[in-house]
Write a protein that binds this DNA or RNA. Structure first.
Lengths: 341, 341
DNA sequence: CTGTTAGCGCATTCAA
DNA sequence: TTGAATGCGCTAACAG
């Protein structure tokens, strides 16, 4: 009685061996049919497929990964899920990997490089085929693993820096700079900034710096500036603008780090009877649909989040090998004129 | 030369055997330390841990899963990522599983039971410890696998039906009904509905039916009703309300299937100079933050999406076994009075 | 086009 | 408290 295989734990879940027996073929042939790999005679394939569907066979990917030292998993580490921005990126990724057989394992880092490192290491245990993360800023340990691993790496959102393999995104510094230029050209001179304190949001920081640079070049500077704790919501934007204007009543334009907060600013203006654009310009970032659906469409910058996710995943799936040289893909951004600045 | 182990493919990635050799212990002892399982002498643990960190050992979970016929993966199938609702659920799930060692594999079904089935089967190949999906409505094949699998199952959002193991959510039919009652009590009589055509959005359908029931009980019925193709956005809500009012100028309240569309309705009213609440009531569903940040906070129903995700994941992690009996957890909902109805 | 052999890295089972 | 033997289910590398 050496019938040990499949006699105990998996309680009936059919294996390759079961399929092979039923089809009268060897295991490896069945395996080839399942993976669509190597030459298979049509008749063979048909028989195997019939056996598979008769048994309801589902391949065991743990075994497959172990044997091949590779998986079909794509590790995705996102800073947050609260803002629609990262779900949009995720949508792009899923659009690209659907039908490819790849699957995503998601981690949320809360904008913390240490959490990112911890999650990354625990996810590497699955031998992922690719790793996607946000930003170019990681702990030294994380960076080391990213550089030495047997998987491809894409860093999203930001392109101002030195990527491991592939960076897909836009220059946030430039976006901030263009925001400044755009508003100066429209005659605004007394600039305010209503931000948040997400110290690890490198992108918001880069935009802020770009903005300041544009002002400096024009002989201007921020007249007033305030920040809320945390990540910044519509409510926060609303309350913050009230405080900012109380301290600096002479501002003629206020820039927010994102559309959510900017919409809060708009709502405050409506509430307080401030004439938007003429009396006070409002400018956001992201280009959310809802901002464009408002009676006064928000003036903002469209970041191409879906495209970033989709492009990155497609690029990663192009080859199984690590790219020989680094690639930077600039998806750019669009200034949305809007009606608020 | 039979030194085959680890001589080729994994190119140096240390294994249990390497750690064991360095620590001067057997593999199984190292394994026990890694998994925090079974009795280990403190001195032993210390030595093993030192060896692990010296080598930078990362356990291979494919091997672990294969050997133990179980994984630390949690399969999550969501209908969509476009609306913040499901990312909110996902946030709740991640809040519950962070620190537990469990990891989520995400699939997006696009509200299609057939896609759900396909993704489910491909994910089962990883032998997940638990499966989370939305709604109680699945294909017969999917249902069969859910019932027979060696994993726990949670069905989210909806509780009107017969769950596989655990259902966590609210009664959408009741939410629709309460919406109707609430508005009738406030004196509204000429009801309109501005919906979408997501035929597979069972929840929206249930709310619609509950609403109609409340109207019927009061001797009323929908005066006008229109639907946009697709899932319904703020823009769509705005355009749809315009059309609906053109066809039925005498409506005194309009219900939308979600806050996004309802906000579009509000924007249309502002644009068209319609006095909200007095002349036309607007009612949504979801209780999004942004709706509450508006100058006129949206009247709506707060669905507890984060709580649903968190509760479900916690419940699933309570035990490794399938529950002996079915559980339904009603997270309820709150009517938000708002200022628009 | 198909099959044989030999592990992948770990956890279970039993023994000490 | 620790260890030895064995196999989880699959695939790489060859051979035929």
């Amino acid at each position: 009685m050496t019938r040990k295989r499949n006699a105990n734990r998996n309680a009936g879940a059919p294996t390759l061996a079961d399929v092979a027996r039923l089809a009268g073929m060897s295991e490896i042939t069945v395996s080839r049919v399942v993976r669509n790999q190597g030459p298979i005679a049509d008749a063979t394939r048909t028989r195997v497929l019939a056996a598979i569907s008769q048994l309801g066979y589902i391949p065991n990917r743990a075994a497959g990964s172990l044997a091949s030292a590779a998986s079909t998993l794509m590790t995705v580490l996102l800073p947050s899920l609260s803002n629609i921005v990262f779900p949009d990126v995720l949508r792009g990724i899923h659009t690209a990997i659907t039908e490819t057989g790849f699957q995503s394992v998601i981690g949320v880092t809360d904008y913390d490089p240490l959490i990112e490192e911890r999650i990354l290491l625990s996810f590497l245990a699955w031998q992922p085929a690719a790793v996607i993360l946000a930003g170019l800023h990681h702990t030294p340990t994380a960076r080391k693993h990213l550089e030495q691993g047997r998987f491809r790496v894409a860093e999203l959102m930001d392109i101002d820096g030195d990527p491991v393999d592939i960076a897909v995104g836009m220059s946030h510094r430039q976006a901030g700079y263009e925001t400044g230029r755009h508003l100066i050209e429209r005659g605004y001179r007394r600039f305010g900034y209503a931000g948040h304190m997400l110290i690890s949001d490198d992108r918001a920081k880069a935009r802020y710096q770009g903005l300041c640079e544009a002002l400096r070049e024009a002989g201007l500077s921020l007249v007033g500036e305030m920040r809320v704790p945390g990540g910044g919501s519509t409510i926060a934007g609303r309350e913050l603008l009230e405080k900012l204007l109380a301290a600096h009543p002479d501002l003629d334009v206020v820039i927010f780090p994102n559309d959510d907060m900017a919409m809060g600013g708009i709502f405050y203006c409506i509430h307080a009877g401030i004439v938007i654009k003429e009396r006070l310009g409002i400018f956001g970032f992201n280009g959310l649909d809802i901002g464009q659906a408002m009676p006064l469409p928000l003036s903002t910058i469209l970041s191409k989040r879906f495209l970033i996710g989709k492009t990155a995943a497609e690029k990663l799936l192009e080859s199984r090998e690590r790219p020989p040289e680094k690639t930077i893909i600039n998806t750019g951004f669009d200034i949305i004129e809007g009606a608020t600045a």
